[in-house]
Simulated assay, not measured.
Amino acid sequence: MRETTTVRLPGRELFVEAFGTQGDPVVLLVAGTGACMLDWDREFCARLAAGRRRVLRYDGRDTGRSTTCPPGSPDYDLHGLASDAIGILDAHGVGAAHLVGLSQGGAVCQLAALTRPDRVTSLTLVSSSPGDADPERPTLPPTPLETRLELHNAPWPQWSDHAAVAEYLVFLDRLHAGAGRDFDEDSSRDRARKVVERAGNIESSLTNHYYVEPVAPWRGHLAGIRTPTLVIHGAHDRLLPLEHGLALSREIPGARMTTLPLGGHGLDPGDWAPVISEILDHTRPLEEGIHSHAAVR
């Protein structure tokens, strides 16, 4: 069963869609930079819900049907986005939930676990990063030069040309794709058109998350996370190389690492089955027994 609602928080509204049955363990899906809830495919959500989970996906600020700020002027930072996640749980009467974050959404989930550990039952961090403890002296590999050049040579489209914006999203999907698989351009284009059609302001959607105010680096605090953590990372991630995921798995106590051999940045449908299985295992209710790797240290 699917249902939608608009969560009203001070100064913003967030559009949320729920899958599954009331009373099942809640899994909150947090999308990445500039991505609306459609980054979590409906079939992916339904299959996760079929494992007896209550799945929530939502449009983050400046995306989809949620509140937007003027282009280039977001009035929030990553801590604000983390408070949005907690606000969604409050609105649904959920004391604590399993948080699954993709890319920047993984950073949001890390901050939620550090600031509100009582509200986070488990963490799953997909294609994410802890960032560098000292940005002036980076230790994690940057986005490869080839990828940066591809992004630089494909400037943002004219925002009023929705067809061009959709093609830009297809370009990004292709850039994010992994290795050894055919890129499904038709599915990418269909999703891109839906993203553009439902965006309150597509320019804000695709730019404002890059303009959020920086927050203090949190990598040095990862050792304090006591939330059971699963890290999932593609071996061929062209935005955040695999070492970013490995760093998370090393520095969060007891974290478990799953590498997707053909994976890129994000989740390819070819990886849904093993990823859903991993998430269901990681979020298994206590009464069903949690594996030792997922026990609180």
Rank of each mutant, 00 (worst) to 15 (best):
R219N: 06
P157H: 02
T67E: 12
T4P: 03
L38K: 09
L125R: 03
G245C: 12
P138T: 03
A46T: 10
R238I: 08
L262A: 11
L78I: 12
G245E: 12
D237I: 02
P157V: 07
V16A: 15
A107M: 15
R116P: 00
R8D: 12
Y211S: 14
P155V: 00
D281C: 11
E203H: 11
V195E: 06
D161N: 15
E167W: 03
L149K: 08
A18R: 10
G224E: 13
V126I: 15
L240E: 04
L248H: 08
A163I: 08
G23A: 14
S204C: 05
E288V: 01
A295W: 07
G95C: 07
L125K: 01
G266N: 03
G93W: 09
L56A: 12
E251N: 08
P141T: 02
A85K: 10
L175C: 08
R57V: 15
C109F: 05
R297L: 14
D134Q: 10
A247M: 11
G106K: 05
N153Y: 03
Y210M: 13
S83Q: 12
V94Y: 03
G264K: 06
L246M: 15
L172Y: 03
L56F: 15
G93Q: 04
L206H: 08
V231M: 00
T21I: 07
P269D: 09
T33H: 00
G11P: 02
T21S: 14
D281G: 13
D75Q: 15
D24G: 01
L99D: 09
D184M: 05
G101I: 05
C109S: 14
A166C: 11
D190Q: 13
D84C: 13
L48P: 13
H244Q: 11
E251A: 05
L175K: 04
H209D: 07
M1W: 01
A223G: 11
E17N: 09
L248G: 02
A112D: 14
A223E: 02
A235Q: 11
L102Q: 12
P71I: 08
